[in-house]
Design a binder for these strands. Sequence first.
DNA 1: CAGGCACCGGAAAACGTTTTCAGGAATTCG
DNA 2: CGAATTCCTGAAAACGTTTTCCGGTGCCTG
Lengths: 358, 358
Amino acid sequence: MSSASMDGSSSQKSRGRRSRTDAGGGAVTLRDVAKLAGVSVATASKALNGQPQVRAETRARVVRAAEQLSFSPNTLAQGLITQRSGTVGLLTSDLEGRFSMPILMGAEDAFGVDEISVFLCDARGDNVRERHHLRALLSRRVDGLIVVGARPDARPSLGRDLAVPVVYAYSPSADPRDLSLVTDNVGGARMAIDHLVQYGRRRIAHITGDATYGAAQDRASGAVDRLAEHGLELAGDQPWFGSWSEAWGRGATRMLLQRCPDLDAIFAGSDEIARGVLDVLHQEKLAVPSQVAVIGFDNWNILAANARPPLSTIDLNLEQLGRLAAQRLFAAIDGDVGSGVETVPCRLVTRESTAPLG
Amino acid sequence: MSSASMDGSSSQKSRGRRSRTDAGGGAVTLRDVAKLAGVSVATASKALNGQPQVRAETRARVVRAAEQLSFSPNTLAQGLITQRSGTVGLLTSDLEGRFSMPILMGAEDAFGVDEISVFLCDARGDNVRERHHLRALLSRRVDGLIVVGARPDARPSLGRDLAVPVVYAYSPSADPRDLSLVTDNVGGARMAIDHLVQYGRRRIAHITGDATYGAAQDRASGAVDRLAEHGLELAGDQPWFGSWSEAWGRGATRMLLQRCPDLDAIFAGSDEIARGVLDVLHQEKLAVPSQVAVIGFDNWNILAANARPPLSTIDLNLEQLGRLAAQRLFAAIDGDVGSGVETVPCRLVTRESTAPLG
DNA sequence: CAGGCACCGGAAAACGTTTTCAGGAATTCG
DNA sequence: CGAATTCCTGAAAACGTTTTCCGGTGCCTG
C-alpha cells in the first residue's frame, strides 16, 4: 500500500496513511478492505451490503477484512450517491428544552439509531437565526425537518417550496396545508375535570396562565364544556387567567378563597401554577386532598413529583408526540405527505393531590 | 394525508431535472449555476468561494446566477473532498436535558451557525446505546465529539484511539489524558459561604444530596473548609447528606431545627433541596431571609426564581462551559489537543432569600 | 461438441464538490 | 516586434461510495 503518494514529506498537513491495523473509524476506506480481502471495491461493497451476487466464502472474507480494519463506511459518500443523507433536522425555539428534549427522544426512538441522526438547532425564538439554521440544514441535505415550537400556538410556516418534508410538532404551522402534531389541550382538560368529578368534587375552580396562549384558552374551554356536560359550573364563575407562574398561582388562590371559600377542587393550568396553589392552601390550613383536591397540567416531573403532596396532573405525552412526528416524517420522506393538524391525546397521572371526597 | 403521493403512476423514483427557477435548496447543483453564468464548474466554485483568481465581473455573474437559482452547495460533497464534515457530535446521557441544553446552546454559540452543525444523541445512560451512537457519529465523520455526562463524577473514557478529538463536559473522563471541563463545585460552595458570612450569618448549616455524588462531597468540603478559614464551624456539626429532592430538604430541615434552633442560614446543596428547606421554614414560621437565610445551588430557574422568596443560588455557568468545550474542541481539531481537567468557575446569583442580618 | 445458462467478480460511471495544472489572451518590457 | 509576464478560465483528478453492465467460468443440455 503506502506507495500511492509519498507527497507527505512536503505537505504541512500530515494526513499520513494509517497503519494496516488502524483501530477507530480512521481513514480506512473500502479500498483498503477490498485490497486486504483480495477483491475489487465493487465486490467489497456488495459483500458488505448483503447484495446477493457474491459467493458466501467471498463475503465472509470481506466481512472479516472489514472488521479487522474496523472499517466504517463514509456516510457522506454514501449520501452523495444515494441522495439520502440519513439525517433530519430538529429545529426548535424552545430555550429550556422543556418540550424539545422529550420530542427529540421520541424521534430518536422512532428513527433507528443507526438509520438516522438528528441535527438539533436552537433558534431561540429569533427569526433570523431560524433562517440561518434552515439554510445550513438544507445545505446538509437533511432528509426532513421537525419544527418544535415553544408554545402551542400557530407559528408561521417555513414555506411550501422546501425540497424536504416538514412536520411541525407542538406549535402547529399557520398554513393548514402543512402537517402539524399538537397535544390535545381540550381533551386533557376534560380528563382533569372527569377525574375530579368522579372523585365526588363539585365545586371546581380553574386557575390558568396567560390568556393570550391558545393552550390556556383550550384548557379553560375544555374544562368549562366538560363541567357543563356534567351539569356543573366553574367555582369562582370563570377561569382565572394570569401568568404561567407560581406567584400567580398563589395570588389567584388567595383571591379565590375569598370569593368562594367552599370550593373542593382546583384545576391548575400548569404544574407551576399548581405549586403556587398548593403553597397557599397549606398556608391557609386547608388539607390536600381531603378538603381541596388539586390537579395540574404538563407533568413537569421536577415540579409535580416533588410537590407536597405529589401532584396529580395531565401528562402531555410529548415523547409519543416525538415518535409520531418521526413516523409522519418517515412517511413523508417516502412520498406519503400528509397535511392538517393531528392531535395527540393526553394522559392522566394520578398522584396524591387528588382523592375521593369523604 | 391528501393527494401528492399519487405519482405512483409512472416512475417510482421521480428524480427528474428541476425547472430552471427551482426555489428551495432542491437539486440545483453547481453545474446548473455554472451553465447559467456561462462559465465552467471550476470557475463557478472559485467565484463563490472568494478565490482570487477570477475576474470581478465574472464573479458577479456567477453570484447572480447562484442566487437566482437559490443555489445551496451540497455539504456532503464538500465534506467528502475537504475531509471535514463540519459537524460535531454531542453525546449526552442526560435524560432531562437539564445540563445538555445549556451546554448545547453554548456550543452552538461558539461554533458559528453556518460553520458547524451539531448532532445531538441521547444515550440515556445505556452503554450499548452509547456505543451505537458513537459508531454512527464516527461513520458520519464528525470532526469532533463533546461528551456530556448526567452527573459530575468521572465516567469511563471513550478510548484514546478515536480518530476524532473528544472533549468531556460536566462529567470528566476517568482517563486523565483526556480533556475534561467541569464546574467548580468547591469554588461555588466557597462563594455561597462567603456570601452568607458577609451578610453576618454565623450559624450556617449545610443540607445536601446523595453522598455518593462527587458534587455533594465537593460542595460539602468546600463549605466546611471555607467556614474554617472564617474561623467558623458548620451548624449541626456536619453536612447532612441525603438525596437530591425536596422531600429530603424538608426532612433534614425539620431535624436540623430540632438540633440547633438558633441557626441563621442554610446552604442547600441544590435548588430542589432549597425548595424543601423553604417550605419547612415557612411552616415553622421562621422568616426568610430575616431570621434564616437560604441559598441553593444550580440556579435551576424554574425552581429558584419562582420560590417564595426568590432563591439566591450558585449558577453553574453551564452555557459558558458549553462555549468553552466548543472552543477546546476547535483547538483540538486544529491539532492543539489538550488534556487534564479544566474547571469553570461558578457565579453567585443574589435574589431575596439572602440578606444582611439585622 | 456447440450453445445456453446460472453464477460470480470487476471495470467504470456517477454523485457534487474543490483544487491543481496547463493553456490562451492580453499586457508589458526590452 | 518578439519575448516575457500577468491574468483569467477550463479540463481533469480526486474524495469514498453504490450500481450498472459486461465478461469469464463451469456446468448442463441438446
